[in-house]
Amino acid sequence: MAAPTRIAAFVTGLVCLATSALAESGDVEAGKRVFSKCQGCHQVGEEAKHRIGPHLNGLFGRRAASHDDFRYSKSFRRAGTGGLEWHAETLDTFLENPRSMASGTRMSFRGLKDAGDRANLIAYLRTFSDDPANIPEADPTARGTDHDLEPTILALKGDPEYGEYLSGECVTCHQASGAGNGIPSIILWPEEDFVVAMHAYKKKQRKHPVMQMVAGRLGDEEIAALAAYFGQLNE
């Protein structure tokens, strides 16, 4: 079922090359490789669900910030209310510099400066848009977060009040408003993602030296407390 869809997209791409419709001139396979930059936060494909960022199925033609079950930044909600819809052109602008369209977005991504990368990525995302049911089971594209943590650690319910106190150490760099330049936003993450990320720093699987140092001395309860606090922080 999916193969024809993709071929169709590819053929359309060839046809449209001359008319400079960016999204349709991209290479789907190359776009899949570009998507590796996105999949730390976004899932797409059959089992895709919201993680740090919303899932990206059915993106084309959709109004921005329109999933009721995802907590968007104020900035994105405003953009959606203002009529921003996702099409090749708007995605191209957004992907080049996310802050150009939603200055307060929590998407901590500097942007794709290479127009070819953007075109390929847009072509790839396009394949998940017409009808997500078309994505074949044998071809999963969404990569789940790597959960090698003890289930007991993931099951811990953190104390947000303790998390609020501990958060003092975080907000010297990570702004409580969710704004971020040079330092990513850490608010409103699903608690599980937050916990997984902090334990990855603690185990030095993630590389950043400041974060390894900070996470290194946090206990399981403390990480759970921070996840609980930042997970519910209002902008």
């Binding site: 010297t172 760099c173 330092i183």
Partner: peptide
């Protein structure tokens, strides 16, 4: 990162 920290 230092610029982000400054704002933070």
């Amino acid at each position: 990162e230092s610029e982000g920290w400054y704002t933070g």
